[in-house]
């Protein structure tokens, strides 16, 4: 049987290692976690300001606020960036602490489906109010 790396004799060890971990993802997860973290900084600050300023608003006032394009766009960006960050973070926690293989897989898949569904629900709600 010919192994995959038999054909890669011309590659340096670094080139083989780069982007080709056992999961074939390299630093992808690590990098995405950092990118969403950086995006979260301004988005979360905007979110806190918003919650403080619209706290206690009536339904009419809240929907009017969310219907403003800037607020709707920032809200959707916030949902995507924070939820993605949450998926990546909880994946690491599950991988570190849950040692039962089948339960780990269930948790990993369940977490991804859960956050995807939650993000769709949030983004649809924002669009329904804003459009």
């Amino acid at each position: 049987m010919k192994l995959k790396w038999d054909n890669e004799g011309m590659k340096s060890p670094l080139a083989r290692a780069r982007g080709l971990g056992s999961a074939h993802e390299g630093a992808d997860h690590w990098m995405k976690q950092r990118i969403t973290a950086i995006a979260n900084i301004p988005l979360v600050i905007w979110f806190v300001f918003s919650v403080v300023s619209i706290r206690g608003a009536s339904h009419a006032e809240f929907t009017e606020w969310l219907a403003h394009p800037v607020n709707a766009i920032l809200a959707i960006l916030l949902i995507i960036s924070t939820f993605y960050h949450a998926v990546l973070g909880s994946q690491v926690v599950v991988e570190d602490y849950i040692h039962s293989e089948w339960f780990k897989v269930v948790k990993l898949i369940g977490t991804k489906l859960f956050f995807f569904a939650l993000a769709v629900a949030c983004i649809f709600s924002i669009l329904k109010i804003a459009l």
């Binding site: 949902i79 939820f83 973070g89 926690v93 939650l118 629900a121 949030c122 924002i126």
Partner: peptide, 24 residues
């Protein structure tokens, strides 16, 4: 890590808030 996990509860509250506003 603990606060990261706790913030997941926060995302549920955001979702409730937004979906409720969309419902009525």
């Amino acid at each position: 890590r603990a606060t990261g996990v706790a913030l997941i509860v926060g995302t549920l509250m955001v979702a409730w808030w937004l979906v409720a506003a969309a419902i009525g």
